[in-house]
């Protein structure tokens, strides 16, 4: 890993040469980190000011004294047209969407991947293509017909309607397929000689073996589900089903109002919408990175 830079002339002293290169590297990285850090941090500092200040002066660099108040209001004050929805309810809905989507996706795609990889099926190739055609085709492309389908099934304003259509893509299946293919063949053979049938092999060996992979894909899918925007916007018109990210739309609309809206509260809510996915990605970043980069192999 210790790669020295040879761009500077050879006659300079070796220690100094390394130092200059390293300083350049660190400068670039610090600038990059600032680029990524500053916008959300400014949102946080700004959220600590009162609405009038924010409306007049915009983003704030310093911490004000309204942080607790704004967050409290965002979480517990009922808002919206019907005055029934508060931040806590939206937070709960976000968790239901994130976890429900991730868990559903993992179960369904693991089973399908297992069937495709480990069984001699005449229609395996067909099933493979039926599933993997959907790999890159996001819900956004077929948004209108999907919405119509949900409406015909009477699933608008239900968690089922919110979660299940999002599962209808092959990303998870593809991920597990790749992982199963990398599991040594001999493991299944040893299990067969040990008298484990296909179901036992799946439950006793393959699922425990995939623990890290499951954790990794859970993180990715949780973030993906949590961050869904267009689909919840269409499917949930009943405010009691609103997720935080869905609520952003309301925040944006309120932010552009001509009167002085509750800017601090809106920002606080946006920050709450960021925290859980960011936390899970930061705390479990080794799993997350592994899952993300191995999903394409």
């Amino acid at each position: 890993m210790a790669e020295t830079t040879l761009e500077t002339p050879v006659e300079t002293h070796r220690p100094r040469r390394i130092k200059w290169g390293a300083i350049g590297d660190h400068t670039v990285l610090i600038l990059g980190a600032l680029l990524m850090m500053i916008p959300p941090l400014l949102a946080l500092t700004t959220a600590s000011h009162d609405a009038v200040t924010i409306h007049r002066e915009g983003l704030q660099l310093t911490l004000g004294d309204n942080l607790g108040k704004n967050f409290h209001a965002a979480m517990f004050e009922k808002g919206g047209f019907t005055q029934t929805v508060d931040g806590t309810l939206m937070l709960m809905n976000s968790f239901i969407l994130g976890i429900g989507f991730a868990v559903g996706k993992i179960i369904i795609s693991m089973m399908a991947a297992y069937a495709i990889v480990y069984f001699r099926l005449r229609f395996a190739t067909l099933a493979f293509w039926v599933i993997f055609t959907t790999l890159l085709l996001p819900l956004e492309v077929r948004i209108l017909p999907s919405y119509e389908a949900i409406q015909k099934l009477g699933l608008t304003n239900t968690y089922t309607g919110l979660i299940v259509p999002l599962i209808a893509s092959a990303t998870g299946t593809f991920f597990f397929r790749q992982f199963f293919m990398s599991v040594p063949e001999e493991l299944a053979e040893a299990a067969r000689i040990d008298g484990a049938g296909p179901w036992k092999f799946f439950v006793d060996i393959l699922v425990p073996l995939s623990r890290t992979m499951i954790a990794a894909i859970f993180i990715i899918m949780f973030v993906f589900g949590w961050n869904q925007y267009l689909w919840p916007t269409l499917i949930t018109t009943d405010e009691s089903f609103f997720t935080l990210v869905r609520g952003i739309k309301q925040i944006v609309l309120s932010y552009t109002d001509s009167q002085i809206p509750e800017h601090g509260q809106a920002l606080a809510l946006a920050i709450v919408a960021m925290i859980p996915p960011v936390a899970i990605v930061v705390f479990f970043q080794n799993w997350f990175v592994k899952g993300l980069t191995e999903s394409d192999k």
Binding site: E186, E189, A191, I193, D204
Partner: peptide, 30 residues
């Protein structure tokens, strides 16, 4: 006859041990 019912045991080149099981469970799984 299924491999499990042939009354055989096999040692593989890469051993094919179950990585998530202890030695005790590996040996006793069959």
């Amino acid at each position: 006859v299924d491999p499990a019912d042939r009354d055989i045991a096999m040692v593989f080149q890469n051993y094919a041990l179950y990585p998530h099981m202890t030695v005790r469970k590996n040996i006793g799984y069959g």
